[in-house]
Computed example of a mutant assay.
Amino acid sequence: MSSSYKDSYRLKSLFTNQNILLASIGWAVLALLYFLLFSAKVPGADGVESRAEWYVIGTNIFEAFAYLGAGILCLRNWRSPQIVSSRNVWLAIAIGMLSYFLGGIFFGYTEIILNEEPDVSIGDVFFVLTYLSLGAGMILAVASRRINLEKWQWLIVLAIGLFGSLLAWWISMQQATSTELLATILNWFYVVSDVFLLIIATTLLLAFWGGRVAQSWRMIAAAAFSLYIADMWFKYAQGPNYQSGEILEVFWVFSGVLFGMGAVLEHDASLSRNRRERGRKRA
Results as ranks from 00 to 15, higher is better:
6 K>Y: 15
9 Y>L: 10
12 K>H: 15
13 S>N: 15
18 Q>T: 15
18 Q>E: 14
20 I>W: 13
21 L>G: 10
21 L>E: 10
22 L>K: 13
29 V>W: 09
30 L>E: 07
32 L>S: 14
33 L>I: 11
42 V>E: 07
43 P>F: 05
47 G>Q: 01
47 G>L: 07
54 W>L: 09
60 N>P: 01
66 A>D: 01
66 A>M: 01
67 Y>Q: 07
69 G>V: 09
73 L>E: 08
76 R>D: 08
84 V>L: 14
89 V>W: 02
93 I>W: 12
93 I>E: 11
93 I>N: 07
94 A>V: 12
98 L>A: 14
100 Y>K: 13
101 F>S: 10
102 L>N: 10
106 F>V: 15
106 F>P: 08
108 G>M: 06
116 E>V: 05
119 D>V: 11
124 D>M: 03
126 F>A: 04
127 F>M: 09
127 F>N: 03
133 S>Y: 07
138 M>N: 05
139 I>R: 11
140 L>K: 03
140 L>D: 05
141 A>E: 08
142 V>A: 04
143 A>C: 12
144 S>C: 03
151 K>C: 01
152 W>A: 09
154 W>M: 09
158 L>A: 08
163 F>V: 13
163 F>W: 07
164 G>Y: 02
165 S>D: 03
171 I>G: 07
171 I>W: 05
173 M>V: 02
180 E>R: 02
180 E>V: 00
180 E>Q: 02
183 A>S: 11
185 I>R: 05
187 N>G: 13
189 F>P: 04
192 V>S: 10
200 I>W: 09
203 T>M: 03
206 L>D: 02
210 G>N: 06
229 I>E: 09
235 K>W: 04
240 P>T: 12
247 I>K: 04
248 L>Q: 12
251 F>I: 09
254 F>D: 01
254 F>I: 11
255 S>T: 12
256 G>D: 04
257 V>K: 02
257 V>T: 05
261 M>H: 12
261 M>C: 15
262 G>K: 07
262 G>W: 13
266 E>K: 05
266 E>L: 04
269 A>Q: 10
270 S>L: 02
279 G>M: 14
